[in-house]
Nucleic acid binder design. Structure first.
Length: 113
DNA sequence: CACCTGACAAATT
DNA sequence: TAATTTGCCAGGT
């Protein structure tokens, strides 16, 4: 099994209303290279993978995607229609935001059962 | 077919 | 305290 597959599997385990970070995933997979995780999600085309529940270490999600035009329609299948859509989804799932761009990681960071 | 680069993060200097 | 380096895979050019 490749890193990508493990990333996808991990992301899919995230419960509704929860989020996780690139770093957490990287560690869980036994690597220090969080770039791979981001790259994995980038390369992902599986509509079942909830990429919108993965944010950076600070809980920031919008700027990352906003600055990369190509993600607005998404390589991530159903995941994004733009960063505002992503934020909306997260809020709908029960995730609270500290401000317009930061998820409340303290409350919603995913931990395995 | 070889080289470039990318949704990140944490330890050094 | 901020800037730099290390981690090191896969896909794109």
């Amino acid at each position: 099994m490749k890193f990508f597959d493990q990333v996808y599997a991990f992301v899919r385990e995230i419960a509704l209303g929860k989020v996780t970070t690139y770093g957490k995933i990287a560690k869980a997979l036994g690597t220090k290279d969080a770039r791979k995780v981001g790259w994995a999600l980038h390369a992902n085309s599986d509509p079942k993978t909830p990429c919108h529940r993965v944010v950076d270490r600070t809980g920031r999600v919008a700027p990352n995607f906003a600055r990369l035009q190509r993600f607005e329609r998404s390589d991530c299948g159903q995941a994004f229609d733009g960063w505002e859509e992503q934020k909306r989804r997260l809020e709908t799932e029960g995730v609270t935001f500290i401000d317009d761009m930061h998820v409340d990681l303290k409350e919603h960071l995913w931990h395995r059962p």
